[in-house]
Amino acid sequence: MTSLASRYLGLELRSPLVPSASPLSRELDDIKTMEDCGAGAIVLYSLFEEQIRNDTAAFYAHKDQGSLSHGEATDYLPEPDSYAIGPHEYLDHIAAAKSAIDIPLIASLNADHVGTWVEYADLCARAGADALELNIYKLAMDPTESGTEVEQEYVDIVREVAKSTSLPVTVKIGPYFSSLGHTSRKLVSAGAAGLVLFNRFYQPDIDLEELEVVPDLKLSNPYESRLAMRWIALLCGRVDCSLAATTGVQSGHDALKLIAAGADVILLASELIRHGIDRLAAIESEMVTWLEENEYESLDQLRGSMSHRTCPDPSAFERTNYMKALLRYM
């Protein structure tokens, strides 16, 4: 069988298929299933900066209501003896997951500015994580903040986290930078061992009847993978770090295209949520079948072959291709 062996963040993986941060990794049984279905590694669901900061605050705000106010009741909920606040529960989960599987486990922290939560990077390491994915989910909403300042915030976060832990840190970012390549290099300089392209900013919807903004999570589709495909192809070899592709992978073909663009690993969530974890095995099988049918000896043979460095027409990833595409409609 054609080898799917891959390397990501210095870790040796048997496959490039990696379940990405999603609710699927909340259950140990599901994590084991991921391994059984051939996952190369697993990115755990994210621990949010807000969770670290607010999880217990919210709980105790509720618990404290009415306490020590009335003669008949000291308080209204029992004091939990072993209340696992969000972060601690997460660390426990890392430890439990790590002992349940043999493949690398990547913890995930989600944040948008530097804060005390940074210490959790090292706590994740101590709990047994093999690497850390840092999901910088920042909406630059402040009109007085310049693009440079926004980028600097990214760099600062990465630097602080990388400094605080010995784990390799991969950074999940969105595509909205004036110069993505330049930003990527700065992040790598700050300590990023990998980049995950791209974060999807979930777009809320408007409920016209209630005149309310409502959260609305839509699972990704294959077309969305094009953005990552282009940028991986463009960054491949230009930044000194691992590259992970995420968003929109639904089949072995989708995965292979991204590998060809230069991705070291493929992160999947929507497809597994939609059709179940065992889709991993099916996608792997589709990949192997295609590779064997096309007489590839290994995945590495394909990896990066369609990046800007080696593809037959590098301009296809660039502006000229836009013109070509438009002309097709004319």
Partner: peptide, 9 residues
């Protein structure tokens, strides 16, 4: 302490 470092701070 049980309520999180942030609350302590």
């Amino acid at each position: 302490g049980k309520r999180g470092d942030h609350v302590v701070e």
